[in-house]
Design a protein around this nucleic acid. Structure first.
Length: 190
DNA sequence: TAGGCCATCTGGTCCT
DNA sequence: AGGACCAGATGGCCTA
C-alpha cells in the first residue's frame, strides 16, 4: 500500500474566480503530471494511478469554454473529490455485489474462473428467454424465442469455440432444468 | 507479449 | 447544491 500523495494538480491551483478550460485538448498520456491516486485504505483493494481524462464523458471536445469556478479552496475541492471517489467506489462495489448475486442464481456450467460480467449478463438474458419459452409452452402458446447457434447470433460474439460450446451447454442446461421443473410442477399440481 | 477483464479515477450530466 | 449516474481513460493482473 502506498500512501496518499497530496500533490494533484487541483491541489496546487490557487483559488480563482474564473478559469479557462480547454476541453478535449488535455494530454491523454499526461500521466507525468499526475500523481498516485487516492488511498484505498478503506477497502484494501488494488489501486490505480490516476486514469481519468478531462475529455471524458459527453463534454464537447475541441471547444474552448470559459466556466466559472466555485469559490472553494483547493483543500475543499480535494476533499470533495476524495469523497466523490469514495462514493463511486462504493457504488461500483454494490454493482459488483449485484453481479455476484446474479451469478449465484443463474444455472451454469461451473468453471475454474468465475463468470465475467458480460457472460453473466448474456446467460441471464438467455435464462430469461428460456423461462419465457417454458411459460409459453405451458400456456400452449408458441415459443417466444428460439435459441440460435451461437455462430449465427449476431448479438452475441464470443471469442473462442470453447466459449461457444459452453454457452450452448448452458442453454441446453437451461432447457433441461426447466423441463424438469415443469414436470415437477405438473406432478405437484395433481 | 497481446488481449481480455477489471478497479479506479475523473469530469460531465442528470436528478432530487 | 450535492449526490447519483455515466462513460472515457489508464494501469494491473492473468491467461493463451
Amino acid at each position: 500500500m502506498r500512501s496518499l500523495e497530496l500533490s494533484t494538480p487541483w491541489q496546487e491551483e490557487e483559488d480563482v474566480e474564473v478559469e479557462d478550460i480547454e476541453l478535449g485538448k488535455h494530454n491523454m498520456n499526461g500521466r507525468d503530471d499526475l500523481t498516485e491516486s487516492s488511498s484505498d485504505e478503506a477497502t484494501g483493494r488494488k489501486r490505480r494511478k490516476h486514469g481519468g481524462s478531462a475529455s471524458s464523458g459527453s463534454a464537447s471536445s475541441g471547444t474552448t469554454t470559459r466556466r466559472r469556478k466555485s469559490c472553494i479552496s483547493a483543500r475543499e475541492r480535494n476533499l470533495r473529490r476524495l469523497e466523490s471517489n469514495e462514493r463511486e467506489r462504493m457504488r461500483m462495489h454494490s454493482l459488483n455485489d449485484a453481479f455476484e448475486q446474479l451469478r449465484e442464481v443463474i444455472p451454469h456450467i461451473k468453471m475454474e474462473r468465475k463468470l465475467s460480467k458480460i457472460e453473466t449478463l448474456t446467460l441471464a438474458k438467455n435464462y430469461i428467454m428460456a423461462l419465457t419459452n417454458v411459460i409459453c409452452e405451458m400456456r400452449g402458446e408458441e415459443k417466444h424465442y428460439t435459441f440460435q447457434d451461437v455462430e449465427d447470433d449476431s448479438t452475441v460474439e464470443l471469442e473462442t469455440t470453447e466459449d461457444n460450446t459452453r454457452e450452448q451447454n448452458n442453454n441446453s442446461m437451461f432447457q433441461q432444468n426447466l423441463e424438469n421443473h415443469q414436470e415437477n410442477a405438473m406432478v405437484n399440481s395433481r
